[in-house]
Design a protein around this nucleic acid. Structure first.
Lengths: 340, 340
DNA sequence: GACTGGCACTCGTTTCAACTGAGTGCCAAG
DNA sequence: CTTGGCACTCAGTTGAAACGAGTGCCAGTC
């Protein structure tokens, strides 16, 4: 079927096309890569590759371009993930080191990823799923208005306002605050949800309405956030490098970037930082993004991913470099988060 | 100079060009708007308007398009800000009403603004400048690691981590927490900066190092945030409606959107919600955005603006509607924030 | 004096045919 | 199996001609 040389030809076609964005013909291919055979031979190989569905011709008198299947084979078998240079690695650490809080880590990561891959970068905020309660604070803003602040082990801070019809007793609040913290501190959010129910019972019936209101809001915060995931996006300006065919290549991506739900689906399930997910062209679940590829991976801890980050770009991207960059950034962010 | 009819002609030209995005000639102008005169007369008026610099011809055998000066005159003298329909107003309130915290208000606002203006929307987070301290919380995460949480009157929550080399005394922290709050609660951040200095002196010399570390971090938080302003952006997909000339119209805007510092300059000084700032084409401070206009206004309270919001779009936008939408959204957001 | 119809003129756009050339498939020879 | 040769295909380019939207100007009219 496909002997080694045919695979070499495919590799050469992919690399050439990624570099030039122009259909590549047999002659130029032989000129640029030293394949050691004549154009005619390459033509035969090309015919075979086309037969197998790895490359295609935009029109009869043009060169070949890789199909999604061609890129897939290239990524799986014909290339190795490129590692970053020491200088780049150093740049990453120093860029991420200056972050002051979790939000800042995410913002910096997205910016960094966009910059080194020159693609659109997407970073999902660490999910609350796997994180645990570090501290719960109840603050009286006015006698009838309370602010709940939930601080998680990943450094995320969630806030909710609770309104009351009667003035609340400051002593009760202090009591509640300490009980909540003893009951929930250190627990996973999913576990905390069950523990919360028991807390109400600790209070005198007269105080129950207030306690119940707060418990309910807290419960919402836990579960809401488990479902709704936040996302940061950056590097949209890189879309300008997509070349022409604006309507087909740029517009759908720009639209997708606004819809965070779509982005979450694109990123897919969080995998651990060892595994890179590459979705090429039509492999992704959106028809409009058929000319777009996604490179993503999880980040968090070695064994268990907190969330996903990745990039979105044209199918004709430089996969080895991009994959290397995504993997490297994910690892460094995991490290930073582990330290915090 | 410019009698009423010439101004009518200018108005017609602007409206037509905004609708069609094509140079408008004397004949079509007479056809579409009932000016009550012949094309020849309109041509004379056009010649006068061109002489004055309000319109121009892309090339000899084409119609006229408004210059920046033409749009300026149109906005200042020839149009009135369009008010929203009751249905639209209702949509705005119901869309903003569901917000759970300040971040959510800002995210919703940006989305809303992008949707109704069909332009790129920019919303600056309420600045800390004018806001005051509502509560300061000091939480021990581990014996040597503290988390500071600052809650402001605008509902903004800032967090900072403080590391210590020795274990900290829980009692001291409680003491510090209460003193900080009594000393600073209700104060403007700018005032609080001065009050902070006095707090250290209240403690025994042995405790000073810890207190000083916390005070310093708090000080940084106050002043950092006064300078660095956060921004939310939305509706970038609307850029696809810019038509062709991608390189000139879309790319610079997309690049500017990444640079929040640039956006802040574009939005300009916060004005109160009564005043709309319109910057047309070259009037804005960036050469690359010469084909772009900005419509912005302040929001917060009636008398004093907390921050700015607005939209960025092509110079040939529908100013009356856009201005109306920006103004309306600013007012509703102000209202929501006042309630919180 | 302001408006209007008529007319010559300009110049970007469209149309169409001819040309060019990169690239292919196939075949016969090495 | 590889290779040089060759006829063929077809998107893109080029150039000339036709087109037409729009203009400025002028002489006549109200």
């Amino acid at each position: 079927m496909l002997d080694d040389r045919k695979l070499d030809v495919l590799r050469a076609i992919v690399e050439d096309y990624v570099a030039t964005h122009e259909p590549v013909g047999s002659k130029t291919l032989v000129d640029r890569h030293n394949l050691g055979v004549s154009p005619a031979t390459v033509r035969n190989d090309m015919a075979a590759l086309e037969e197998e569905g790895y490359i295609t011709q935009p029109h009869t008198s043009a060169g070949r371009i890789p199909t999604d299947a061609g890129y897939r084979l290239f990524v799986d078998k014909l290339s190795t993930v490129k590692t970053l240079s020491p200088a780049e690695k150093k740049a990453i650490t120093s860029f991420l080191a200056g972050a002051v809080d979790l939000d800042d880590v995410v913002r910096r990561t997205v910016r960094l990823l966009a910059q080194i891959t020159r693609q659109v970068a997407i970073v999902q905020y660490p999910s609350l799923n796997r994180s645990s309660v570090r501290h719960i604070e109840v603050v009286t803003m006015t006698p009838r208005r309370l602010l709940l602040v939930l601080i998680t082990s990943t450094g995320r801070v969630e806030q909710r306002i609770v309104e009351q019809t009667n003035d609340v007793d400051e002593q009760l609040i202090a009591d509640l605050r300490s009980r909540l913290n003893t009951a929930l501190s250190g627990q996973r959010l999913t576990e905390a949800t069950t523990s919360l129910a028991a807390v109400t019972d600790l209070f005198a019936p007269a105080d129950r309405p207030l306690v119940a209101a707060i418990v309910t809001t807290l419960l919402e915060t836990f579960t809401d956030e488990v479902g709704e995931q936040r996302i940061a996006v950056g590097g949209a300006a890189n879309l300008t490098r997509y070349g022409d065919d604006f309507e087909r290549n740029v517009k759908p991506v720009l639209e997708a970037l606004e819809e965070h739900v779509i982005l979450l689906k694109l990123l897919g399930e969080a995998t651990n930082p060892q595994t890179l997910t590459v979705r090429i062209g039509h492999e992704n679940p959106f028809e409009e993004l058929a000319t777009t590829s996604v490179v993503a991976t999880g980040y968090g801890s070695k064994s268990e991913a907190l969330a996903t980050l990745g990039i979105v770009g044209p199918t004709h991207m430089d996969y080895p470099s991009t994959m290397g960059a995504v993997r490297a950034v994910a690892r460094y962010v995991s490290q930073i988060l582990a330290d915090t």
